[in-house]
Nucleic acid binder design. Structure first.
Length: 170
DNA sequence: CGCAAGATTATT
DNA sequence: ATAATCTTGCGA
């Protein structure tokens, strides 16, 4: 029994709308350096009509990556002490991203975007990286037929009318 | 340049 | 409920 090669997900996967990509990312395998785990919790952000998104106010230095090509990382610092990992989605010019909030590793279950980045040692050094042409940082196939719940997004004050927070069952 | 807010977390 | 801690974006 030979282990199947890990093929990074392609642009076709990421170019769809952020809420759809967020759902589809559940159960997929995230690989970062020596770490490899299953994505268990995601959240979608879209620029044009989403006041919770960093891209809502338009393109700034920070949000520029969200306006770029899909399949790239977006890592930012929050509250002066934590980092959050996102993956850019939708076509170039259409700002959107998916926040990775939960990851199940063999040795630990990381619930929460800040804790996730702290454990993986992900920082803004890893911002704007192409996850589709990369041996050390990418997403690949994982669990099939994932069941999930949908709720309002966590930790935001505006945009709670959108139910773009997804958690994998089990 | 100053300031207020923030896609969080651990602790009280 | 609140502190910790600092970047970002906006207004002067």
């Amino acid at each position: 029994m030979v282990k199947k090669n890990s093929i990074p997900l392609e642009e076709d996967f990421y170019i769809r709308k952020a809420p759809e990509v967020a759902q589809e990312l559940l159960g997929k395998r995230l690989v970062f350096n020596q770490f490899s785990g299953i994505i268990t919790e995601t959240e979608a952000y879209r620029g044009t009509d989403d006041p919770a998104s960093h891209a809502y106010l338009g393109q700034t230095k920070r949000s520029a990556i969200m306006f770029g090509s899909p399949g790239y990382s977006y890592v930012y610092m929050i509250y002066g002490m934590y980092f959050c990992l996102n993956i850019v989605t939708e076509k170039s010019g259409q700002p959107a991203a998916v926040l990775i909030r939960g990851l199940k590793l063999p040795e630990i279950n990381l619930n929460g975007p800040g804790k996730l980045c702290r454990y993986l040692q992900l920082t803004t050094k890893h911002n704007a990286i192409n996850l589709m042409q990369n041996d050390l940082f990418y997403v690949t196939s994982g669990i099939e037929g994932v069941q999930y719940n949908t709720t309002s997004r966590i930790g935001i004050k505006q945009g709670q009318d959108k139910f773009w927070h997804y958690t994998m069952n089990n």
